[in-house]
């Protein structure tokens, strides 16, 4: 059930995960926004049936109708990146999730079908291949909305063509500390990619985790999108490593001090707010990567990042918690993991 959080992929000291999403629709059927409950239900059934036999290299799937899930359970799926906040609000929707949580299909989100595969580390190509296998299996059971000129037809014009959004979650603390992050942000957007902070809004990015994804879906083949994103990501990894080396060379004691202080707080705090947690977690992740902190598996850091979110904490405690109670539960959970 851990999926990408295992953290055992290539480059997983800087790349948390790689994701590929494919948007697909059924021909001549209104898109989910205006689809009545009955036909929406039959889309859910068609999609679930099409994956019943499993998919090579992925295994079996289980279908969860949103209407059968409580608010908390929906939110937990959002926090684990298995469904989007939009799908969580859609009563006619469903989430079809693979046993290992690596692959999922959102049914009746913005499009009828959103296939997604998330793998640990830098594995964009593999994520695309697996998503494409799922796509092939599903296509046998339904007729997709497809046009020779424009490719896969989607609700939003920004997804038409391949319907593909490939992305990586990347941890860039050293580029941020050394004040180089803005240069990277600007350069990336000039070559048809977008980058945004995963947590925090606007320029106030928390936890140094960024998401880089392709912007263009029409006129570029999937392989090009994969190559382009992988290439750019490798470049950024190189820059981040260089920034880390320079930091250590010039400010070793300051960096060590920062990491050990963060470790001290994470290991001992009794009250932990979510933003503070993300900031400290970034320091600890850096400490592990630099070999300053030892014997902490990446999977534990990923679990802390995901499981300390609001809904996941409440699910774990088996009851609703106030913000103050969550801060206490968060601190407890972190201490138990480290």
């Amino acid at each position: 059930m851990k999926g990408w959080m295992e953290g055992n992929g290539p480059q997983s000291n800087i790349i948390l995960s790689s994701r590929t999403r494919l948007a697909r629709n059924i021909n001549e059927l209104p898109f989910p926004d205006t689809l009545d409950a009955e036909r929406a239900g039959s889309v859910v059934k068609t999609v679930s049936d099409s994956l019943e036999g499993g998919v090579p290299d992925i295994g079996r799937f289980e279908s969860h109708r949103l209407q059968d899930l409580g608010q908390l359970e929906r939110q937990v799926l959002v926090e684990r990146h298995l469904i989007s906040p939009k799908l969580a609000k859609q009563n006619n929707g469903a989430a079809v999730i693979s046993d290992d949580s690596i692959a999922s299909v959102m049914v009746n989100e913005e499009d009828h079908i959103r296939i997604q595969v998330i793998l640990p580390g830098l594995q964009i190509r593999k994520a695309w291949e697996l998503a494409s296998n799922m796509d092939d299996a599903m296509e046998q059971r339904m007729e997709y909305a497809y046009d020779e000129r424009w490719g896969y037809l989607t609700c939003c014009p920004t997804n038409v063509g391949t319907g593909m959004r490939a992305s990586v979650m990347i941890h860039l603390p050293a580029l941020n500390i050394t004040g180089n992050i803005n240069k990277i942000l600007q350069a990336v957007t000039q070559i048809g990619l977008t980058i945004r902070g995963l947590y925090g809004e606007g320029t106030d990015i928390i936890g140094n985790v960024f998401q880089i994804s392709n912007q263009i879906t029409l006129g570029r083949a999937e392989e090009e999108i994969v190559e382009n994103l992988t290439g750019v990501t490798m470049q950024i990894i190189g820059k981040e490593k260089e920034a880390r080396r320079i930091l250590l060379e010039n400010n070793r004691v300051q960096i060590e001090d920062r990491i050990w202080r963060s470790w001290g707080i994470m290991k001992n705090a009794r009250i932990m707010q979510s933003q503070e947690c993300l900031k400290l977690l970034s320091d600890i992740r850096l400490g592990v990567d630099l070999g300053i902190l030892e014997d902490i598996p990446v999977s534990v850091l990923n679990e802390i990042m995901i499981d300390t979110q609001s809904a996941s904490l409440q699910k774990r405690s088996g009851k609703e918690l106030t913000a103050a109670e969550r801060d206490i539960a968060r601190a407890e959970l972190i201490r138990s993991k480290l």
Binding site: N25, N27, E28, L29, P30, F31, D33, T34, A145, D147, E148, R149, W150, G151, Y152, L153, T154, C155, C156, P157, T158, V160, G161, T162, M164, G192, I216, T217, L218, G219, R220, A221, E222
Partner: peptide, 29 residues
């Protein structure tokens, strides 16, 4: 769009929009 049929009905007049968003008007994937 409301459904895949809209693409067919609105037809070629969508191309300038696609050109603006993607810089392209033809699928190659």
């Amino acid at each position: 769009f409301g459904c895949s049929g809209c693409y067919m009905v609105f037809g070629e007049r969508l191309n300038p929009l696609f050109k603006r968003v993607h810089g392209n008007t033809a699928h190659t994937g």
